[in-house]
Computed example of a mutant assay.
Amino acid sequence: MRKLFVLLTMSLLVVAASAQKFSWPPKSYPMKVPFAVSEEVKYYWDVQGVLCTGRGNGGYKFRVLGTANHDFTVSRSINFYYISTGNKTTVAGAYYFPKVKEGQQFSFEIVSAFAGYTPAGFQVFYIHDEMLSIPKEEKETKTIGNIQQKDADRAYYDSIRIVDSIAAVEAAEAEMAAERAARVVTAPKYPGGTKALYTFLQENMRKPQIAIETAGYGTTTIEFIVTSDGTVTGANYKRRCNERVDKEVMRLVNMLEGWIPATKGGQPCNAVVQVSMSIFPSFKASAQFVRVVQ
């Protein structure tokens, strides 16, 4: 533990400025989370960003991303710690880091920050594992001059890493935003909206009187596709009432023209819609968007 706190003192200097701007819990997602990484972990996994991406499993989801500095041939459980006001340390959990090849980018998700377990003053993630070590040959330096040069190089490269970390996090945020936008779906819309649709059906309905007098109770449901250019195609029955009522509802559905098509990721696409109608004893109608068609 003494070694841990020595490392904490050194590593927290890197994130002290950003930690002051960090507020928990998040007000929006994704949110950059300040972090510090021990030299042993950084030797293999150069963590360049930690993002809180939302709630999950009673806690919060975090995405850890970066680039491998050296090969690591197995998945490894690595400890995370919460650092709160006054550099107080609380265990956040142990999470598996992936096996990597030098130069390989990595990105994986963890779930942490559970209610009742996370310090209210949570400011920084500290990533460290007491059992992980840097190979002996990597620690050896031949002269004082080499040690000084190595320290100077580390300071220089650490300054570059901070800039690269910001770029990596911003790139990840942009990628996540693009993925969310690509998943956004809007339903097709009848011109004038649902009320206009129901008005059209009611005003153009021709009551099949004989069918009503015999077996006109019930609802007819028809499923159809609104294409990417707003036309109706592929209408078929999902629920029937009786032959004449069913035919009348089908006739009306095939008259529904000029839809505003559904979109996925901002692009028009085909979509499945259902319209239900009952004619007797009074007119009732409903419509629902079912799904987009790939």
Results as ranks from 00 to 15, higher is better:
P25C: 11
A92W: 13
K238W: 08
R244T: 15
C269E: 01
T231F: 09
K61Y: 13
V184Y: 09
S133H: 14
A68H: 11
F5G: 00
V184D: 01
M1P: 05
T199C: 03
P208D: 06
V50S: 02
N69R: 15
I160K: 08
K88F: 11
E130S: 10
R206D: 01
A174G: 05
N242R: 14
G58V: 09
T90S: 14
V275A: 03
R183S: 15
P191G: 02
A19F: 07
Y156F: 13
A167F: 13
S28C: 07
A115W: 09
F224H: 02
T118K: 05
T9D: 10
V249N: 05
K139W: 10
Y157K: 04
T220C: 14
S107V: 08
T89A: 04
A262W: 03
P268W: 10
R154I: 10
E248H: 09
K139S: 09
K207D: 06
I134C: 01
P98E: 04
T233H: 02
Y60N: 12
A36L: 04
N204H: 10
V100Y: 07
I225V: 14
E175W: 07
V33Q: 03
V111D: 00
G54M: 13
K21F: 06
E40Y: 06
Y157V: 06
L12A: 02
L51V: 14
R291V: 04
F289E: 02
S28D: 14
F125W: 12
R161L: 12
F72H: 12
I127C: 01
G266L: 03
A68F: 13
G49N: 06
Y29E: 05
S278I: 10
I134R: 01
Q209K: 12
G258Q: 07
F125K: 04
G218T: 15
V184T: 12
D46V: 11
G145H: 08
T53R: 09
V232T: 12
Y96V: 13
G121D: 15
L4P: 00
E223V: 14
V124W: 00
P208I: 14
M10I: 15
A271Y: 06
S112H: 01
